[in-house]
């Protein structure tokens, strides 16, 4: 442990040199909004909701992948950051098909919570409604690409925790899609173990068990980290 002193929002805080800004903030009850981050899996810095301002740098840095440095002065929220968080959330809404009233995850959705938290009342951008399909081929689960926000949490949990690497991302730009194996139906996957971790990892209503309808989906993303911790302990 190499303890260093940093400054967050004007308060002096002690931190371990190897920690990320996000870890330090969570330890000290300083709120950082995240979407693509999940405890227990690696970080990619893709959703850009955790951007913070660091004194001396004109670029905003993602809290999830930036490590703390001695005497770093961090501002976690200000008007500029809030404005960008709002736009990011609006863009996520506009990108595919997000209508809470008809969604299985209604009431248990991280995107919905984020929208409420940021006090967004309208989406100012035209909805793109791209041509996405629903994969119902798996005997137990459904993957609805219309509700996917491309956080890639399912991809990482499948690769890093389960070790199956059933999921990946195909294409690029706004045409990216989550795929199973060779873009083959999930039910025909040669790699999926049907463990269900991706269901819990998904922050929205894109992956859910077949027996569930509107608003019934409750997830437990925390179980992924518990699992990782338990494995480390090797009980």
């Amino acid at each position: 442990m190499n303890i260093i002193e940093i400054n967050i929002n004007g308060n002096a805080i002690k931190a371990d040199a190897g920690q990320t800004i996000l870890e330090v903030c969570r330890q000290n009850d300083i709120e950082i909004l995240t979407m693509c981050h999940m405890d227990g899996i690696s970080d990619v810095g893709a959703c850009r909701l955790c951007l913070v301002q660091i004194e001396g740098s004109n670029k905003l840095m993602p809290a999830c992948t930036t490590k703390v440095m001695p005497n770093m002065a961090i501002t976690t929220t200000n008007e500029r950051i809030k404005k960008y968080q709002k736009i990011t959330t609006e863009l996520l809404h506009a990108e595919r098909n997000h209508t809470c009233a008809v969604c299985v995850a209604n009431g248990h959705c991280e995107l919905q919570d984020m929208t409420a938290k940021l006090e967004i009342t309208h989406i100012r951008y035209p909805h793109l409604f791209p041509d996405c399909d629903m994969d119902t081929s798996h005997p137990w689960y459904i993957m609805d690409h219309n509700r996917c926000i491309m956080c890639t949490r399912c991809v990482r949990v499948c690769k890093e925790v389960e070790g199956a690497h059933n999921w990946d991302v195909m294409g690029r730009g706004h045409e990216v899609r989550i795929i199973s194996d060779y873009h083959t139906p999930w039910g025909e996957s040669e790699t999926c173990t049907s463990c269900g971790k991706c269901l819990h990892a998904c922050p929205v209503g894109a992956i859910w068990p077949k027996a569930i309808s509107q608003g019934q989906l409750v997830k437990n993303p925390g179980m992924i980290n518990d699992l990782v911790e338990k494995r480390k302990m090797n009980l």
Partner: peptide
């Protein structure tokens, strides 16, 4: 755009 981060993936399209 590689499609990884939201601003570039959706922002450039918008």
């Amino acid at each position: 755009s590689c499609g990884k981060c939201v601003p570039c993936r959706v922002g450039t399209k918008m």
